[in-house]
Design a protein around this nucleic acid. Structure first.
Lengths: 222, 222
DNA sequence: TCCCACTGAAAACAACTGTTTTAAACATTA
DNA sequence: TAATGTTTAAAACAGTTGTTTTCAGTGGGA
């Protein structure tokens, strides 16, 4: 209990501070003093600051991948080899993302961390996430491919990242946006409200008409 | 010429380094040594590192706002009070974004900086941008409101930020995504390619069907 | 000619960073 | 009991950070 307590206290404090300020802007002394543990405890338990950062992510992503694999297993069993509709795939992902942090941590923090991983990670974090959790993403995209056979592979790749950008950007910047929205339209927006609004937009984005071909545009016009 | 040379050399170097590594991870010594200017020159010309960061943004955003206002002036004159279609509004914005950095700087750098401003800026940068350049955004959103009268105000607010997230996320993480895309689908993707792919997706997202009403869900079920 | 803004090199400043070490206590388990 | 792993305290480490200062030159405009 003693060990667990210190380790989780560090993780709980670190994830909040990381989400608020970013990785480089959060010092180990800030974390340890706010968590009321010894400065040396971080290097004792985790080895380094980089390892701490990765541990913070693993605490979210490990249970997420387990649950998501299970959810996809069920979904595939239900459809018995048939193609799973895109809406159900997105629905399953959304539900899993909502379930995991709901247990103890904050969804907002989880999304902020994901946003940071994309924008701030020089190398080690993005590499760590890709190597450790890339397989779930690959399984998901394979199912999406079968659900959208009319889309060229490259087009689907980009559109998945388009909607990924929408979700991460919106949910990671939620606090600031919510303040504006509540002041201007005085209606409270919960995360589940946002996901309700997100669903038709994401589906429409994935099903948008194909763009016109590149239309050879260089100097010599026809 | 002597003055201008040092100032622009600092700005040119700083914007690239900021875009590559972020603000906190880029030291003044790295900037000045790479720009082959004196370390003290930054504080001499700009006053502080924060002011340098704001100056980097102003060099992009000042000409952008000027051009965008002009483009909207023309657009409004063309339509003589009539409603401007959403596609043309988005088209105009995209064209302006493409024009500004094209002169001398890199569009990729510009987008990375925008992404950083959203994800990394604790306070001073976001406040600076909001206060300095908020009016153009307001004018644009007003025109969008008239172009999409069927959308409730709150819905339009969120959808605009959804697509903003798509664009910033995609274009600011362009390098990493491009590496994956080129390896998997071996086709080179230029920024203009991406914008061509972005257009139908953004339009479809804005025109998506309205989400179902909140559907009172609380504890006491019916 | 004098002046002033600019540039350069160098050093110092105080503050903060991640990390390591030493010491002494505490708990649990073998 | 003895041993082991955990926690704390405190200090020191070497390095980096933004900022300031000093001194010495440079150039062009009044």
């Amino acid at each position: 209990m003693a060990q667990t307590d210190t380790v989780t206290r560090i993780l709980d404090t670190a994830e909040v501070l990381f989400a608020e300020r970013g990785f480089a802007e959060t010092s180990l002394r800030t974390i340890t003093s706010k968590a009321r543990v010894n400065l040396a405890a971080v290097n004792y338990h985790f080895g380094s600051k980089k390892a701490l950062i990765q541990a913070v992510f693993s605490r979210y992503l490990d249970p997420f991948t387990v649950r998501f694999h299970h959810a996809l297993d069920e979904l595939e069993a239900q459809h018995a080899g048939a193609v799973i509709p895109l809406e159900q795939l997105l629905e399953t992902m959304a539900r899993t993302v909502l379930e995991v942090p709901a247990e103890k941590h904050s969804l907002k923090v989880f999304m902020k961390l994901l946003g940071l991983a994309y924008s701030q990670a020089q190398g080690h974090l993005r590499r760590h996430i890709q190597e450790e959790y890339g397989s779930v993403f690959t399984r998901f995209t394979d199912l999406v491919r079968r659900a959208t056979p009319e889309l060229p592979d490259a087009e689907r790749f980009w559109r998945l990242h388009f909607v990924l950008g929408t979700v991460i950007f919106t949910l990671s910047g939620l606090d600031a946006l919510r303040d504006i929205a509540e002041k201007d339209y005085h209606e409270h927006v919960s995360v589940r409200d946002l996901i309700r609004r997100l669903r038709p937009v994401v589906v429409a984005a994935m099903n948008a008409p194909l763009p016109p071909p590149p239309a050879a545009q260089p100097a010599k016009a026809s």
